[in-house]
Design a protein around this nucleic acid. Structure first.
Lengths: 237, 237
DNA sequence: CTGTGCCAAATTGTTAAAATTTATTGATAA
DNA sequence: TTATCAATAAATTTTAACAATTTGGCACAG
């Protein structure tokens, strides 16, 4: 079983200006927890670490502020955005609602190609149960899981809604990573997820928008209690 | 009748760093059509015009790229984002859908204070019919109209959904300005709007989420045909 | 324990100049 | 005339050095 892990970075081009490069790597590092929430982001350190000078670096940081992954305090530089239970809940609520809306539209607007891509990505995801190294399994599962959900959403046919979905997704990712880091994905949990996905595909193919939106919202909200425990264990309220 | 036109810019602080200042004024100028779509944004010109040097200016521009009001072409600088019928339709569709969702949530979650603010801002908006200079009337109406819709949306109680609403709003504004520029707001059009608002308030107070979402979506989509004509008259497809 | 004043460190912004890349012009050849 | 192409001009992108402010910490006095 070959796992399809391409680079698949943010969008497209590898050789753009330095600001975009710095933005991508910094964002990646923040989402993956290389920096602790509220950690100060020293200009001098970042300049050295990412090999860029003040100009492009500030560009990258100001974009991360727009993404809400970094906060700027006037005259006091940048910090990694704090994490909180309130934000955890709001982000997941907003995302569940938005994803529910998008799914509703996709069911209303999606054509045969869309259905085909949903079925295809669902099938590819279901096949990841086979035994392999835990890391490979997790990486492979996560990649195909994301592809599955992206395929579903793309049916809404609205670039702007999909863009908002991406923005929210990055923020969810930071919390999600906290979960993946601490929780080993058990085979029972995996089985539960597979059932949820199967049910989702079923109602989607039946074009039952109401039920699909409900299933999707529940599916997206399930990780919240676990992440809550992890946050509390780290003394974050 | 005193019109309440405060500065009320983007968020909060007036005296921040130069990048934010440049960002605000540039955004304002683009939305108000000071620059034509696809117009080249010369660094040298902008530096002189806004009185900032390369650093802060690039920061501002890269944020406008994130807002999709400016596009960056690698090694070839920045341009004002193009406008098209496709984008007009997608932006309005996305906004109508999102606003419908937000309204649904607001009706579900909004408390008495929310209802009160909806009624208050609706009342303030309805009072702008009195005769005054056309400019004053338009500015005052627009300001109160925005306040009315913001009050409605705020009931959803989700900072992240409201933030996405703001982002979309800025993009709608650019198209909307095209409309305000060319169309004189007739008293019959104003009367129609007032009826739509009254109907909206009524179903909101009745907590009829389904009907409210439909009314809201229609209300937001009505300007599209007019803007389409303006765009076509300008040779934009 | 609580301010006060000084000093080091960091942010923020400007300027000048280097390194690339793109655009233009004008001469030459088909 | 039209196309090609090299030389030149212009603009972007980045760096580096420096000035101006601001913040944070710390010794010291009350």
């Amino acid at each position: 079983m070959e796992i399809d892990m391409k680079i698949a970075m943010e969008t497209d081009a590898p050789r753009q200006n330095l600001a975009i490069n710095a933005y991508r790597t910094l964002k990646h590092d923040i989402i993956r927890g290389r920096y602790v929430p509220k950690e100060k982001l020293l200009m001098s350190l970042l300049k050295e670490r990412y090999g860029v000078s003040t100009g492009p670096l500030r560009e990258a940081l100001s974009q991360l502020v727009a993404d809400r992954l970094v906060v700027a305090i006037s005259q006091r530089g940048y910090r990694v955005a704090p994490m909180s239970l309130a934000e955890l809940n709001d982000i997941h609520d907003a995302r569940a609602q938005l994803e529910g809306l998008i799914l509703r539209l996709a069911i209303e607007r999606g054509d045969d190609d869309w259905e085909a891509s949903v079925v295809a990505t669902a099938h590819r995801l279901a096949k990841v149960t086979d035994i392999s190294s835990p890391d490979e399994l997790l990486d492979g599962w996560d990649f195909r899981h994301k592809a599955f959900h992206t395929a579903i959403a793309s049916g809404c046919n609205s670039p702007h809604l999909l863009q908002m979905r991406n923005t929210l997704f990055d923020q969810v990712e930071r919390y999600r990573h906290l979960w993946l880091q601490e929780t080993v994905m058990s085979s029972t949990a995996l089985e539960q997820k597979r059932q949820e996905h199967a049910a989702l595909v079923e109602v989607i193919l039946a074009r039952d928008a109401e039920q699909a939106a409900i299933l999707m919202r529940d599916h997206l909200m399930t990780p919240v209690p676990i992440i809550t425990r992890v946050l509390e264990a780290r003394g974050i309220s």
